[in-house]
Simulated assay, not measured.
Amino acid sequence: MKNIAYYITTHGLGHATRSIAIIRELLKDPKLQIYICSKLPKNYLNGCFHSNSIKFHESDTLFGVRYKELLQVDIEKSIDIFRDGIKKQEKYIEKELEFCKKNNIDLIICDICPFPFDVADKLKIPSIAISNFDWYTIFKHIINQKKSHDLYENLEILRESYEKADLLLRLPFSIDMKFFKKKLNVSLVVRELTRDKTEIRSVFNLEEDVLLIFYGLTDYTFTTDELIKKFDILNTKHKELKIFFSKFLKKYIPKREYFRFILEEDQESQDYVAASDLVIGKVGYGTVSECVAYKKPLIYTTRKDFLEDIGLAKGIEMFGKGKYYTPKALLNGEFENLVNLTYELSKKSISNEIAINGALEVFQIIKKFI
């Protein structure tokens, strides 16, 4: 039996969804014991796996950013998170060293906190990074906006930690992560569908001719009254319209006959994306990868000062069916008739194809390390 510690950041669900896809491949090998190291909710993870080969270990994410109005990165609060993460480095490494020794960890996989690579280095065990971005590059840009030159020395701590990784498996639509000593590009990592379009629609008693729109933003602070009003106006003209929302928004959004929510016990949101005719959201890895994989039109916006979005926006334009709106326009529903737009984007041809078997590729690479 080989033991893997798989570290997953809680900054955005895209890290979780792609890690779930990879872990599901790993579980096909009965000789692997996987410890998921994260602060992701256990009920969420338990709903994704039904295996005795999975155990959970609570581990801090440490790094992330905060947002203010219109999906702008809050520079001041994000720098506070950076400072706090640096202060916790020593205790974090000490705690994770103890955990890895106690559980005889043979391999560390990380998406994408830097300090687990310090742990692997001290234990003399291999480590693999999996991501489309890194926190060194993200915070370098943020610190440059603030011109906080006193933070550059601390910034190098992140780079030095990442340099200790034995391999970076670089996902499609990535930013440049040149300081990793060894890199390997992999195909798109995306969760496979567990149900088809007909099954999802039947759960909600929806006919085949119903037009389904999936609203992908999960933070209630970005769901404005103006947006709901625009949906109401659209629904008066198009009674065939239904809109899916995340279950996390259920208690914040007013009730409407044409609103639907992902079921509380259902963790397979990719099935809802694939069952929809149009997706609305920001360009996170999970949203973009699933829209590209399942060829769904995406009305999207980007986050100011968050560099990850540059690669993701290029990805949806090159390999998907995307249409960009400013954060203000998208969050306030200032777009054209969504019904017409859905049909327009659906007809858009995709000039570039991309392989979506990245989870299997990653599994095959990981096996070589253990």
Rank of each mutant, 00 (worst) to 15 (best):
residue 256 R to A: 09
residue 225 D to F: 09
residue 269 S to N: 09
residue 263 L to I: 07
residue 236 T to V: 12
residue 236 T to S: 15
residue 282 K to M: 06
residue 284 G to Q: 11
residue 251 K to N: 04
residue 288 V to R: 08
residue 277 D to P: 08
residue 269 S to A: 11
residue 205 N to F: 05
residue 241 L to W: 04
residue 226 E to P: 07
residue 287 T to V: 11
residue 284 G to Y: 14
residue 238 H to N: 14
residue 283 V to C: 07
residue 249 L to G: 02
residue 229 K to T: 15
residue 216 G to M: 14
residue 220 Y to P: 11
residue 240 E to L: 12
residue 252 Y to E: 01
residue 249 L to V: 06
residue 288 V to M: 05
residue 248 F to Q: 02
residue 270 Q to W: 04
residue 210 V to F: 02
residue 288 V to G: 06
residue 257 E to M: 05
residue 212 L to T: 01
residue 249 L to R: 05
residue 282 K to I: 13
residue 270 Q to I: 10
residue 218 T to F: 06
residue 212 L to G: 00
residue 219 D to E: 13
residue 246 S to T: 11
residue 217 L to S: 06
residue 261 F to V: 10
residue 261 F to S: 00
residue 284 G to T: 04
residue 240 E to S: 15
residue 250 K to H: 02
residue 289 S to T: 14
residue 290 E to F: 07
residue 262 I to M: 09
residue 235 N to G: 03
residue 271 D to F: 06
residue 245 F to G: 04
residue 252 Y to R: 05
residue 282 K to D: 07
residue 210 V to P: 02
residue 236 T to G: 08
residue 214 F to Y: 15
residue 218 T to G: 15
residue 261 F to I: 11
residue 247 K to W: 07
residue 206 L to C: 01
residue 271 D to P: 07
residue 238 H to D: 08
residue 239 K to I: 13
residue 230 K to F: 09
residue 284 G to E: 08
residue 250 K to V: 08
residue 230 K to A: 03
residue 209 D to A: 03
residue 254 P to L: 11
residue 221 T to S: 05
residue 206 L to W: 05
residue 251 K to R: 01
residue 215 Y to L: 15
residue 275 A to R: 08
residue 248 F to W: 04
residue 273 V to L: 14
residue 243 I to S: 12
residue 211 L to K: 15
residue 240 E to N: 15
residue 259 F to C: 09
residue 242 K to A: 00
residue 266 D to W: 08
residue 221 T to F: 00
residue 215 Y to I: 15
residue 266 D to L: 02
residue 271 D to Y: 04
residue 235 N to S: 14
residue 275 A to I: 13
residue 228 I to Q: 09
residue 293 A to V: 12
residue 289 S to C: 09
residue 271 D to G: 06
residue 218 T to K: 13
residue 216 G to E: 13
residue 264 E to G: 02
residue 284 G to R: 10
residue 254 P to T: 12
residue 219 D to I: 08
residue 270 Q to T: 14
residue 260 R to G: 03
residue 254 P to V: 09
residue 285 Y to Q: 11
residue 212 L to M: 15
residue 266 D to S: 04
residue 268 E to Q: 13
residue 268 E to G: 00
residue 234 L to E: 05
residue 222 F to W: 03
residue 237 K to E: 00
residue 285 Y to T: 12
residue 215 Y to W: 14
residue 263 L to T: 07
residue 257 E to W: 02
residue 273 V to C: 03
residue 244 F to I: 14
